Amino acid sequence: MPIRPTKDQLAAAQDKTIPDVLKPGLDVLFCGINPGLYSGALGLHFARPGNRFWPALHAGGFTPRLLDPSEQRELLDLGLGITNVVARTTARADELTGDELRAGGKRLVETVLEFNPRWLAILGITAYRTAFGEKHAGVGRQSRKIGETGVWVLPNPSGLNAHWTPAGLAAEFAALRAQLVT
């Protein structure tokens, strides 16, 4: 388990980036809004202990066991990857501008067209709406496709998104997982 970053390490992580966990032909490319400072300090996606991405991924049937963020590269062997709409780290997602999110949406389209996953799963409805200009989009399967890639919106797994319970997150992840076996 990674060591908890210090206050100075968190401050130094502002505006850093974390490499994507990515290869061609994945089943699902999970896309966060942007990495937080905790993730930036450790160089790992969804690293903050209160983030519910890893538990939801497991509970939704994507992983055979609960993975630690330090095991993120193991996702590739499961046909899964991770990227972000905006690459730079911030303390909170609301520090991002609409222009950054829209530019990130364009970059994300390029990434998807290059790597061709079966599904792009964006983790955060507000970020998706802004990045893709879809004001009324909801959680779940979207009508939009990027090349041959389907687009799915999942709830933001941040612990700050208390509206979604762990069971609710798991159910949404499982709904996407069910698409892989049909």
Rank of each mutant, 00 (worst) to 15 (best):
W119A: 12
D77P: 15
V86H: 04
T130A: 10
G43W: 08
D68S: 15
P157L: 02
T6E: 10
E148R: 15
D68I: 12
V112F: 02
G79V: 01
W152C: 11
G124Y: 00
T97R: 07
E95W: 05
A137G: 12
S39T: 05
V112L: 05
E71N: 05
V181E: 14
G79S: 01
N84W: 10
R144V: 09
L42E: 10
A93K: 07
K145A: 12
K106F: 06
Q142R: 12
L22F: 01
W152K: 14
T83M: 03
K23Y: 05
G25E: 09
R102N: 06
L154P: 04
G36Q: 10
R102E: 13
E74W: 11
W54C: 00
I18D: 00
R118P: 11
R4F: 13
G140I: 02
R48S: 15
R129E: 11
F115Y: 13
S158I: 07
A170N: 03
L67N: 04
F53T: 01
G60L: 01
F53M: 02
T6W: 01
T165Q: 00
A12K: 04
T126S: 14
A171E: 15
Y128E: 10
R141C: 08
V21W: 09
E110M: 06
A11L: 12
K7A: 09
L120Q: 03
A167G: 13
R48P: 11
G79D: 00
A103N: 11
V21P: 05
T6P: 05
N84F: 03
